[in-house]
Lab assay of single mutants.
Amino acid sequence: TFTSIVTTNPDFGGFEFYVEAGQQFDDSAYEEAYGVSVPSAVVEEMNAKAAQLKDGEWLNVSHE
């Protein structure tokens, strides 16, 4: 299960995956970082959410 939350205070020191406002979700980078295949429906969902981000916001993507 993939989830996401919007934050204005990303923790770059941890093992977190963020999408910056104005960027798209990079499923290849996510797969490389976590060894998890990302279904195309999830990629579309995360890109739709990322498109709604305002300046200074980040989308924190995770999975269980």
Rank of each mutant, 00 (worst) to 15 (best):
T1R: 14
T1V: 13
T1S: 12
T1P: 09
T1M: 13
F2S: 00
F2G: 00
F2A: 00
F2Q: 00
F2K: 00
T3I: 13
T3G: 06
T3Q: 09
T3C: 14
S4T: 09
S4A: 12
S4K: 04
S4M: 08
S4E: 02
I5T: 14
I5G: 07
I5H: 13
I5P: 04
I5N: 11
I5C: 15
I5V: 13
V6Y: 03
V6C: 09
V6T: 07
V6W: 02
V6D: 02
V6H: 02
V6S: 05
T7D: 04
T7H: 03
T7E: 06
T7A: 04
T7G: 01
T7C: 09
T7K: 03
T8L: 09
T8N: 09
T8K: 10
T8H: 07
T8M: 10
T8F: 07
T8A: 08
T8P: 05
N9M: 11
N9S: 12
N9G: 06
N9F: 09
N9Q: 11
P10C: 08
P10G: 03
P10F: 03
P10V: 05
P10A: 04
P10W: 02
P10Q: 04
P10I: 05
P10H: 06
P10M: 03
D11S: 10
D11E: 09
D11I: 13
D11F: 12
D11L: 10
D11R: 09
D11P: 06
F12A: 06
F12H: 09
F12Q: 06
F12R: 07
F12P: 06
F12K: 07
G13N: 13
G13F: 11
G13K: 10
G13P: 05
G13H: 11
G14T: 09
G14I: 08
G14Y: 06
G14H: 08
F15E: 10
F15T: 14
F15W: 11
F15R: 14
F15K: 14
F15G: 14
F15I: 11
F15A: 12
F15S: 14
E16I: 09
E16A: 14
E16C: 15
E16G: 15
E16K: 15
F17E: 00
F17N: 00
F17I: 03
F17W: 10
F17R: 01
F17V: 03
Y18H: 05
Y18D: 00
Y18Q: 07
Y18L: 07
Y18K: 04
Y18E: 00
Y18P: 02
Y18A: 02
Y18W: 08
V19D: 02
V19L: 07
V19F: 03
V19Q: 01
V19C: 04
V19Y: 01
V19G: 01
E20T: 09
E20I: 07
E20K: 15
E20Q: 14
E20C: 10
E20F: 10
A21W: 11
A21T: 05
A21C: 08
A21D: 01
A21P: 08
A21Y: 12
G22C: 06
G22D: 02
G22M: 06
G22S: 04
G22N: 06
G22Q: 05
G22I: 02
G22W: 05
Q23R: 09
Q23Y: 10
Q23P: 00
Q23I: 04
Q23C: 11
Q23N: 09
Q23E: 09
Q24L: 14
Q24R: 13
Q24W: 12
Q24P: 11
Q24N: 11
Q24E: 10
F25Y: 02
F25T: 00
D26F: 05
D26N: 12
D26E: 05
D26K: 06
D26V: 06
D27N: 14
D27W: 15
D27F: 15
D27V: 15
S28L: 13
S28W: 11
S28M: 13
S28N: 12
S28R: 15
S28V: 14
A29F: 07
A29S: 07
A29R: 10
A29M: 09
A29L: 11
A29T: 06
A29K: 12
A29E: 06
Y30R: 01
Y30M: 03
Y30C: 03
Y30P: 00
Y30Q: 01
Y30G: 02
Y30A: 01
Y30N: 00
E31M: 13
E31C: 11
E31H: 11
E31I: 07
E31R: 14
E31G: 09
E31F: 15
E31P: 01
E31W: 14
E32C: 13
E32L: 15
E32Q: 14
E32R: 15
E32T: 11
E32Y: 11
A33H: 11
A33L: 15
A33Y: 12
A33G: 04
A33C: 14
A33Q: 14
Y34L: 06
Y34G: 01
Y34M: 08
Y34P: 00
Y34V: 03
Y34T: 09
Y34S: 04
Y34F: 14
Y34Q: 04
G35E: 04
G35N: 08
G35S: 07
G35H: 08
G35T: 04
G35Q: 07
G35I: 02
V36C: 07
V36N: 02
V36I: 13
V36T: 05
V36D: 03
V36F: 09
V36P: 02
S37C: 13
S37E: 09
S37K: 15
S37H: 14
V38A: 04
V38N: 00
V38I: 08
V38R: 00
V38P: 06
V38D: 02
V38G: 02
V38F: 02
P39R: 00
P39I: 03
P39K: 01
P39Q: 03
P39F: 01
P39Y: 02
P39V: 03
S40H: 12
S40Q: 14
S40C: 13
S40A: 14
S40W: 14
S40K: 15
S40G: 09
S40R: 14
S40M: 13
S40P: 14
A41G: 09
A41W: 15
A41P: 07
A41D: 11
A41E: 12
V42Y: 05
V42P: 01
V42E: 03
V42K: 04
V42A: 05
V42C: 06
V43N: 04
V43Q: 06
V43C: 06
V43S: 07
V43W: 06
V43E: 03
V43Y: 06
V43D: 02
V43L: 08
V43T: 10
E44Q: 12
E44F: 08
E44S: 10
E45S: 09
E45Y: 10
E45W: 11
E45C: 10
E45Q: 10
E45A: 10
M46P: 01
M46W: 10
M46R: 00
M46Y: 05
M46A: 04
N47E: 03
N47M: 06
N47H: 04
N47T: 09
N47D: 05
N47F: 04
A48L: 13
A48P: 00
A48K: 12
A48H: 12
A48G: 08
K49N: 06
K49I: 13
K49Q: 10
K49L: 14
K49H: 07
K49F: 08
K49C: 08
K49P: 05
K49R: 13
A50F: 00
A50H: 01
A50M: 05
A50G: 02
A50V: 08
A50E: 02
A50N: 01
A50L: 10
A50S: 06
A51Q: 10
A51H: 08
A51E: 08
Q52E: 10
Q52P: 00
Q52T: 10
Q52G: 09
Q52S: 10
L53A: 00
L53Q: 00
L53F: 00
K54I: 08
K54S: 09
K54L: 09
K54R: 12
K54T: 08
K54V: 08
K54Q: 10
D55K: 14
D55F: 12
D55M: 12
D55C: 11
G56S: 04
G56V: 02
G56A: 03
E57D: 04
E57Q: 09
E57W: 05
E57V: 01
E57S: 04
E57Y: 06
E57P: 00
E57K: 02
E57T: 04
W58E: 01
W58Y: 10
W58R: 02
W58D: 01
W58Q: 01
W58I: 02
W58M: 09
L59M: 06
L59R: 00
L59P: 00
L59V: 01
L59I: 03
L59C: 02
N60P: 00
N60V: 15
N60I: 15
N60S: 14
N60M: 15
N60A: 15
N60K: 15
N60G: 14
N60Y: 15
N60E: 10
N60H: 15
N60D: 03
V61W: 02
V61C: 04
V61D: 01
V61T: 03
V61A: 01
S62K: 15
S62E: 03
S62L: 10
S62F: 14
S62Q: 10
H63N: 05
H63E: 02
H63R: 06
H63L: 06
H63D: 03
E64I: 14
E64F: 11
E64H: 14
E64C: 14
E64N: 13
E64K: 14
E64V: 15
